[in-house]
């Protein structure tokens, strides 16, 4: 009788554990170190909140005036849009670049090592006009800023 009870408890426990494993595997529980590996879910997410959630475990970030996004107001060629993100914040852990109107909004996430300055520059593709959003993680908190970029494909107005 008592061994049977124990067996039941044991089964229950192992089931709970495996359910947790599945949750982690499916990305429901975001692992703490977001930059441990390429985050497939975030980088294939079709909308910004999903990407943010799987990348940072939150889809909200505090707006900050201390983040500067350098991007053209009008990009003639959507295939090559130069983007520079810089911030004066201390302890920058990562900088993510999101093109909100792209089919897959999250474009890049830069994990900054110790001693890094809050500065990254790259070139991204933009499907159509929209906001370029930068999400900076500094001191365990999320900050954001955005800039609108107008894309004129073929140079016939947008």
């Amino acid at each position: 009788m008592s061994t049977d009870m124990k067996r039941r408890i044991f089964l229950k426990g192992s089931m709970a554990a495996s359910a947790l494993g599945v949750a982690v595997g499916a990305g429901l529980l975001a692992p703490k170190s977001v930059l441990a590996a390429w985050n497939k879910e975030a980088f294939t997410a079709k909308d910004t909140p999903t990407a943010m959630n799987s990348l940072f475990g939150a889809d909200q970030a505090e707006e900050s005036g201390d983040i500067k996004i350098k991007a053209p107001d009008i990009a003639e060629n959507g295939a090559v849009v130069p983007i520079t993100v810089s911030t004066g914040m201390a302890g920058v852990e990562s900088i993510a670049i999101i093109a909100s109107n792209n089919p897959v909004p999250l474009v890049a996430n830069f994990g900054m090592g110790e001693g890094s300055s809050g500065f990254v520059s790259t070139r991204i593709k933009m499907g159509k006009s929209g906001d370029v959003v930068a999400v900076v993680k500094a001191g365990g908190k999320l900050y954001t800023a955005k800039k609108g970029v107008k894309v004129t494909i073929g140079g016939c107005g947008g």
């Binding site: 980088f43 295939a79 474009v107 890049a108 990254v120 520059s121 790259t122 070139r123 991204i124």
Partner: peptide, 19 residues
Amino acid sequence: VMTAYWNGGVSKNPYLSFK
């Protein structure tokens, strides 16, 4: 000093700069 994660949203022949 820096690890970047990208997808196909980064332009062809990518450029990268950091400090």
